[in-house]
Design a binder for these strands. Structure first.
Lengths: 212, 212
DNA sequence: GTAGAATAAAGGGTTTTTCCTATTCGTAAA
DNA sequence: TTTACGAATAGGAAAAACCCTTTATTCTAC
């Protein structure tokens, strides 16, 4: 008897390939493959489709890995989610773990490390690389991410700021006075320690507030 | 007897997984796997290591897919390069094809399409999806990419512009007068049809001139 | 009820960016 | 030898961005 694994990844070639790898492991076999979180949620409605492990990509269209993991964790907490991503952004890793992922692997791991991770996941209930451990320690040592301190209206402004619009134009679109927009900008600059709009754009793109 | 395939990709898990898929195909088998272009070039020095096909990732550290393909095409034109990438940027696709790639696959293809591509590659000598065909047609219909019209010094300026530096500071770092920098900026704005620096930053990131 | 956040907005000043036109200087082509 | 061109540069001016301080208003907590 082997543990069942579901692969969720929008890059079909990759998911199939990873599925192939997993099928090659002694104690694991692939139950099925999904293209996004939505598809997974649908599938799980049938009890026969509930696996031991979900290998979950983080960046997916329709329903991304974070939402999917979160849903999964609420409804089927016994299913262990192992995140698999090229994403090394601290905040993404944290969000994934908070959503209930039991482990986080970078996509550049070796085949043997994947097998090892799966084994440890079933034995200990979790698996974490050094990178992830470091992120966790950092996050515990106080400092809430400055990103989390941004409010919804501020995020909306930032997305506008990542265009060629002037602040005046942004103010019009957000139905606010240009002076209010300046206020938003100034408080964001201070919170994120930025000097000017260029810095803000780079920050927004780095932290996926705005995706070009 | 089966055709030999080399996989070049910096994401080790992916390259091993794709290798596994290829080994599963009837007429193909994996010769070896490389982490980047440099490693491939080294390997090829031994005639025993020259494969029929190279499955080449485009985004790699050290020596990327475009450089690697270009080198390969000069020294071993009989080797067929099939580019494999998540990149859908027109310019990247074009550069890869100009470098001598015989095909370009998005990483979200299905297993069967990969096999089909490999077979067609050996039979016809090339394989192109509809997406790639469209890009090719577009590129032929005149309009050289505005990106290509940017000169080296301009690109250097753009990378500086993607920071929090003022133009004055950029001028200092490039040992030019602030007025010259203004000249650069204005001609770039016109060439790329931009209104302001924010637009330039977004453009630079979209077209991989600057990677955040 | 009232102090204190949090949100929206204004006044007014400085710096940077944006835009337009024009000059110099070297190099390459006619 | 002109002519033409591109790269570097300047002056001037308007627009936008940046910065600091202050003021209503609302909502919330004590």
């Amino acid at each position: 008897m082997s543990y069942s694994v579901v692969v969720v990844d929008d890059h079909i070639l990759l998911s199939q390939a990873i599925g192939g790898l997993v099928d090659g492991f002694d104690k694991f076999s692939v139950l099925y493959i999904c293209k996004n979180g939505q598809e997974l949620v649908e599938k799980l409605k049938n009890p026969k489709n509930i696996p031991d492990i979900v290998l979950m990509d983080v960046n997916m269209p329709i329903m991304n890995g974070i939402e999917a993991t979160s849903t999964l964790y609420k409804e089927y907490p016994q299913v262990k989610v192992l995140a698999l991503s090229i994403e090394e952004d601290e905040n993404v890793i944290l969000k994934m773990l908070r959503a209930g992922a039991k482990g986080y692997l970078m996509k550049d791991v070796k085949k043997t490390e994947l097998e090892n991770a799966l084994l440890e996941l079933m034995e200990k209930g979790y698996y974490h690389t050094n990178t992830v451990a470091k992120v966790l320690v950092d996050s515990l040592s106080g400092k809430e991410s400055s990103l989390d301190s941004l409010k919804e209206r501020e995020l909306e402004f930032i997305r506008h700021a990542c265009t060629e619009k002037t602040y005046k134009e942004i103010a019009d679109e957000m139905f606010l006075s240009p002076k209010t927009i300046e206020g938003y900008r100034n408080s964001i600059f201070e919170k994120l320690n930025l000097r000017n709009r260029t810095g803000l754009v780079i920050y927004a793109i780095k932290h996926k507030i705005f995706i070009p």
